[in-house]
Design a protein around this nucleic acid. Structure first.
Lengths: 345, 345
DNA sequence: ATGAAAGCGCTAACAC
DNA sequence: GTGTTAGCGCTTTCAT
C-alpha cells in the first residue's frame, strides 16, 4: 500500500510553474492580473500534476463555501427524489455541491442533520421534509436555524414548518380539496380517507382540504372513515385492507399521497375489485409513475422538481428583510382510477 | 436585516470559559488531558453559545472530513435513488455526511463531479453510474481517482468501470441472460430488445447476457431486433413504438431496465395489446414499483439498496493491497407481464 | 493539567 | 504583472 503522500498543493504548482503562489492562485481562479501566457502555463502545470484546490483551505481563507445542504425524509421516496433532483439541478448550474441527509421523518433526526449541516458551514440549507403540527417538535431546529441565519447562513423550507425562513409552500390544502371535490362531484359519498401521521403538517393540511371539500357537500370528516397510517406504499396497503374490512360499503378511497395510493391499488387488484367500476381511487403528488400505473392514477399534481429548484433559488438569493413565501400551484389530473359511483347491487 | 456577524469560534468559547483554546479543543473533542470539571464547564459554555466547530478549519488542521461523495447519473431515477438510500443509510450510521452529484450520464460530467469531490477532500468517493465501454472515456476520471487514492482517499465504484478501485459488480450479464432465458423457455423466439446507449457497460453487459441466452437456443443477436434508445421511461416508450411498427410479429419485449419496461407497458396499454396474452414484457432491476404495476412486471432483481450499502462499506474499509471485487446476486422475479407464446392467429 | 505557538492550504490585501 | 504576507479557525506538538 503506497504511503499516503499528500495531494499537490498550490505551492507545489507554483514552484513547478516557476511563479509565486499568488500568481498561481490568480491564474487558476481565472482572475485578472496575470498575463495570459503565464496563466496558461500555470493551468497546464496544474493539470499535469492533477492539482485540485482544497475547498476547505479556500473556504477558510474567505472564499465561498459553495455547498448547500438538503434534508429529506428518505431519498428512496420518489417525492423526495424528485425534489432532490430539482435542488441538485439548480445547485450544479450555479456551482454548488449538495449534501443530502435523511431526517427519517423524525424531529430528532432532523435536528441532528441540521447540526451536521451547520458544522459544515454550508451556504444554505433546504429542509424538504414535512413540518410538524406541534411547534415544540421543531423548536430546537428553529433555534439552530435562526442562529445559522443570523451568522449569514441561508435557509429555505419546503412545506409548512415552524421555522423562521423563506418557504416554498406546496398547495397541500387545495390539493386535498381538489382530490376530494373530484370524487364528490362524481357522486361519491362513502369515501374512505387513507391518511398519514397526523403530526405532519402535510398530512394535516391535505386532510383539511378534504374536510373543506366535504363541507361544500354538507359533509364533515366524521361522516367518512379516516385512517391514519404510514405515509408509504405499505401504509397505503395495510390502510386499504383495514378500511375495506371495516367499511364494505365504500365506493371511493383517497390516499393522501401517491405512494399510499399505489399500495391501495395493489390491494384492490389482489381482491379483484375493479377500479374504477367498483371503487375509485385518488392520490396526491403525481409522482412520475402515477401515469403508468394501471389503471393510471387520478391525482393532484404538485411540481416536486420545480419545488426543489424554487427552494434552492430562494435560498441562494440575498436575504430579504421579511420572509419570502412562494406558493406552488396544483393541478387535478384526472386519469383512469376514478369514475362514477357504481350502481347499488 | 441583521448584519451577519460571524459564528462563534473556538477562541470565543475558550475566552468565555476562561481557558486556552488548546484546552477548549481538547474538552470539546473529549480528548484526555483535561480535568473533568474544566471539560464539563467548557462544553456547557459551548452549548450555551451555540458553538459548532467549523469543519473547514478542522479539516485543514488535519482532521478527517467525515464526508463521502456519491456520483449518480440522476437522483430522480429510482435505480439511483435506491442506491443512494443505501449509501446514506450506512453513512449516517457511521457518522458521515454524503454529498450527491449528478453526472448526467456523461463522461465529462462525471469528471467534473469527481474533481469537485476531490476538492472537497471527501474521505471516500462512490461512483454509482454505469461505466463506459470505451476506456478512453474514463481515462481522466481514472487518473484523478488514482491520484486521489494515492493521497489516502478511498474509492468504490458500482458497475464495470475503467477505474482502478474497489468495485461492487451488479450481475448485469447474468440478469440479462435470466430475463431472456425466461422468455425463451416460455417459447418466445420473436423477441424485441429495447436497449440503452451502447457505450454504457451496464447496457453492454445486459445485452451480452441476452446474447448468451439466445445462443443457448441456437439464436444470435442478429436474429432479433435490438433497438438502442434512451435508458429512461421515455426511451422505453418510443423504443416500443418503433419496434412494434417495424416488427409486428414480435411476441415478447425485453427492456434492459425497468424504467424502460414501464414505458413499454404504457405503449402496449395505449394500443390495447394484452400483456401477457398477446405480448410478454420483461425488465431488469426490480425497482420498488415493479411489483405494483398492472400487469406486475416480470424482472430480474438487483439489490440496489444493498449495493449502495456495500459500496460505501467497502470504501470505508482500510485499503487493501489489491482491489476488492464484490459481485451482487440477481434473482428472476416472475410476475404477470410474461406468459406463453400466443397462438398464431 | 494547561497554555503558547506552529502550521494546515488557500485568498486577498498590499507592496513592488 | 507579479511577489510577499497576514490571516481564516482549528488541531497538535512542545513547553511549562
Amino acid at each position: 500500500m503506497p504511503k499516503p503522500r499528500s495531494a499537490p498543493r498550490l505551492a507545489d504548482v507554483a514552484l513547478r510553474a516557476g511563479v509565486s503562489i499568488a500568481t498561481a492562485s490568480r491564474a487558476l481562479a481565472r482572475r485578472e492580473g496575470v498575463s495570459e501566457a503565464v496563466a496558461a502555463h500555470v493551468r497546464e502545470v496544474a493539470l499535469r500534476m492533477g492539482y485540485v484546490a482544497n475547498i476547505h483551505a479556500r473556504t477558510l481563507a474567505g472564499g465561498a463555501t459553495s455547498t448547500v445542504g438538503l434534508i429529506v425524509h428518505e431519498i428512496g421516496d420518489p417525492y423526495f427524489a424528485e425534489i432532490a433532483s430539482g435542488v441538485i439541478g439548480v445547485a450544479s448550474q450555479r456551482g454548488f455541491s449538495v449534501q443530502i441527509c435523511h431526517s427519517g421523518r423524525d424531529p430528532a433526526g432532523e435536528l441532528h442533520q441540521i447540526r451536521t449541516l451547520i458544522a459544515h458551514r454550508t451556504d444554505a440549507i433546504v429542509v424538504a421534509g414535512s413540518g410538524y403540527t406541534e411547534p415544540a417538535m421543531q423548536a430546537e431546529s428553529n433555534a439552530l436555524l435562526t442562529a445559522f441565519q443570523e451568522t449569514g447562513g441561508r435557509v429555505a423550507v419546503i412545506g409548512r414548518h415552524h421555522i423562521a425562513a423563506d418557504a416554498v409552500r406546496p398547495d397541500n390544502e387545495a390539493a386535498g380539496a381538489a382530490a376530494a371535490a373530484h370524487l364528490l362531484t362524481l357522486g361519491h359519498r362513502r369515501i374512505g380517507v387513507i391518511s398519514g401521521p397526523p403530526v405532519l403538517t402535510t398530512v394535516a393540511d391535505r386532510l383539511a382540504g378534504v374536510e373543506k371539500a366535504l363541507a361544500a357537500h354538507g359533509l364533515t370528516l366524521d361522516d367518512v372513515p379516516v385512517l391514519p397510517t404510514d405515509f408509504t406504499r405499505n401504509g397505503g396497503h395495510s390502510g386499504a385492507e383495514r378500511l375495506l374490512a371495516e367499511h364494505p360499503d365504500l365506493t371511493a378511497l383517497i390516499a393522501l399521497n401517491d405512494l399510499m395510493a399505489i399500495g391501495v391499488l395493489s390491494v384492490l387488484r389482489a381482491r379483484g375489485i375493479a377500479v374504477p367500476q367498483q371503487m375509485s381511487v385518488a392520490g396526491v403528488d403525481d409522482v412520475a409513475v402515477a401515469a403508468d400505473l394501471a389503471p393510471s392514477l387520478t391525482t393532484v399534481r404538485l411540481p416536486m422538481t420545480e419545488m426543489g429548484e424554487l427552494a434552492l433559488t430562494m435560498a441562494l438569493k440575498p436575504p430579504s428583510a421579511r420572509r419570502r413565501r412562494k406558493n406552488t400551484g396544483h393541478e387535478l389530473i384526472v386519469r383512469d382510477s376514478t369514475g362514477p359511483v357504481p350502481p347499488v347491487r
